[in-house]
Design a protein around this nucleic acid. Sequence first.
DNA 1: GAGCAAATTCCGCAAGGCGAAACCTCTGTT
DNA 2: AACAGAGGTTTCGCCTTGCGGAATTTGCTC
Lengths: 267, 267
Amino acid sequence: MPKTAARAHDNPYVVQPVMKALKVLELVARQGHEIALTAVSKELRIPKTTTFRYLQTLTAAGFLDHNRATDRYNLGPQLRAIARADASVSKIRELARPAMIELMHEFNETVNLAVKGNGTIVYIDLIEANRSLRMQARIGESHPMHSTALGKAILAFLPEAERRRQLDLPLTERTGRTLIEREEIERQLRQVARTGYATEMGENEDGAMCVGVPVLDEDGYPVAALSISAPLMRMPHSLAAKAGMRLREVAAGISARLGSHPAGATR
Amino acid sequence: MPKTAARAHDNPYVVQPVMKALKVLELVARQGHEIALTAVSKELRIPKTTTFRYLQTLTAAGFLDHNRATDRYNLGPQLRAIARADASVSKIRELARPAMIELMHEFNETVNLAVKGNGTIVYIDLIEANRSLRMQARIGESHPMHSTALGKAILAFLPEAERRRQLDLPLTERTGRTLIEREEIERQLRQVARTGYATEMGENEDGAMCVGVPVLDEDGYPVAALSISAPLMRMPHSLAAKAGMRLREVAAGISARLGSHPAGATR
DNA sequence: GAGCAAATTCCGCAAGGCGAAACCTCTGTT
DNA sequence: AACAGAGGTTTCGCCTTGCGGAATTTGCTC
């Protein structure tokens, strides 16, 4: 059996130890229960020593859990955490999408959905208005928190300590109108907390504005934000206020449904 | 910062390529969105070439997904499948446990819970009766499908094609009473499908018997099975029939509650 | 169409992964 | 209590194969 070059035809860049370790991970996971070193080794036809090393590594990384009592391995916390975080994002996107499409038609402007990243907001979905002049972000793109309506909406609803930590980071000046004075930002955030929606006027991109609201999870934590963005010239204050109101309604609906899952696994 | 030997103190058996690739996987997963090669490389301080290889490997294994349009990576189907399977098993165990304890007290015999493995059933939980002579399986142990009540209960409710595939595999003879005639087994499975419970009399272990029923998911697929096992001498046919009935009730309750989660992710 | 930035490919070096075998450590047994 | 055996851990030297700098290609942007 020519097993040496077995995987080479797949992709010359595949790193064998990684691939084999992933097979181990997969096998352990698919058992749905603890499994011992020897069993993995036999099943995968990988020598015991090598299997041992992979199991050790996977365990060290938290992807597996080693039960010292039974000397068996099963799924670890890391993998569950990743899956949970992913499911959460998927769920928000799924819940938000219909409402976003509705909003897009209502205002005929681009509607954005973003999650809180590390000091930034990250677009996870957007419905573009069918207009020649439109604001475009990209899914996967990160923007600073303090210069976007999405970010300000999240900041305003963050727990005190975390908000402070965010604002302690250096605040980049994206345009001439970006707020970089701590005082000024905090004043605005207090207002956002009162009205429930945040606005941004050319602070992130020249000529563009945005109205954003937070999406809260069952604990009231702002996991994401929803916004409508438009060229400044097309969105006067009065319309922005109206958009803010509608966004609040929509986000409230999403937030409500976010908490309604029984969550099968441990926490 | 001496980062070369940074991980060596952890565990001499940690395989570096695997560990680093897992860090890549984790980083990508924790983004909650697509991320590009260069970003991963910079974040993790791993040379671009190496990062590239890991991303390729993780993608080839299905743990990541490579979006060719944007040349970015995010979580792949494999990881989601693993997480889903794990959550499902956890949930079954969780839901079944109270009922199993009740059953154990009711019959004063060991109650077993198993999931379908690859051609086998795998014990994922059991409540042992407090008797000196008792049947004992072990959590994590696998038994053949055709020689156990648990397996027969599952087989009987499997889709036609999959059942055939299972029975095409060589059927090991565990005891002198193990059924290995295809005809005979299929006749029994039809009966199991009618009555809703399967029995096994010394076919898996001499002197032991077992009554089992399937646990069905929302699609009617037998994901697991529940059984009561006892020494043959303690369980006459009449009692076995009674146990079968009770097991059916209990499993129906579990099956019903299995479908009651909204299931956040795609399918 | 020039100029980047990012991804992909190439290539030679040697780090470090590999696996056989020895060793240890339990559990169950006589 | 000693034994046997299965399964887990450690050692060790070979040599595969992973590594990463550099070159090349690809795909944008101006």
